[in-house]
């Protein structure tokens, strides 16, 4: 089964999941940034959580209606309505449930590192990134490679994906510590 078929099946059949990720970005001079590690969860439609834990804490959370961005070092939580921009973000490819192929062109790529690859290219030129490659193994996304418009490559490795999970609402709600500056944006 091709990678594009595996993605379509994944988006169709996996309604919710949790897992871990590692992520590192390489710039055009090949200078790699320190690796980040954390946990993620999603529940279609529209709910996802991307929690960086190392080397610092940072949370991006959507409950389907509001998008929260919290950083304890920066002592700030921003909250804004989820808008269509989410539909064209990299997260939407895996976590979204809208018509994937309305926003992205999917094409199969050669097998590599034991994974079957596809390339998701945003149809809108304002998506902010050039493409995202996804490497599949037995129906599960294992590697993501995101190329932004400035030639920077972010490689994300997903692990411990649990798909037989029923996630309670509080997985996608967040209340910050009392002293955090909460800014609600229009």
């Amino acid at each position: 089964q091709s990678a594009t078929d595996q993605l379509r099946q994944f988006v169709q059949e996996v309604r919710s999941a949790t897992g871990k990720f590692t992520q590192h970005t390489m710039d055009t001079q090949g200078q790699a940034r320190p690796e980040q590690a954390g946990e993620f969860a999603f529940q279609r439609p529209g709910k996802f959580k991307w929690q960086v834990l190392k080397p610092y804490e940072q949370l991006v959370l959507s409950d389907g209606k509001q998008l929260y961005q919290y950083d304890p070092d920066l002592n700030q939580l921003t909250q804004r309505r989820v808008d269509q921009a989410i539909g064209t973000s990299p997260a939407a490819i895996l976590f979204g449930s809208g018509q994937l192929e309305q926003s992205f062109h999917l094409s199969d790529r050669p097998e590599q590192d034991g994974l079957l690859w596809l390339r998701a290219t945003p149809k809108s030129k304002d998506a902010g990134f050039d493409y995202m490659d996804i490497g599949f193994q037995a129906g599960t996304p294992v590697q993501l490679v995101l190329l932004d418009a400035f030639g920077q490559q972010t490689r994300i490795t997903l692990s411990q994906l649990q798909t037989k999970v029923d996630l309670t609402a509080d997985m996608f709600t967040f209340t910050p510590p009392a002293d955090v500056d909460v800014v609600t944006l229009p």
């Binding site: 991307w50 960086v52 990299p90 920077q152």
Partner: peptide
Amino acid sequence: LDLTNPMGTVLAR
């Protein structure tokens, strides 16, 4: 000066 989003994508340079 690159300004990036949490996923490391450069939003503006």
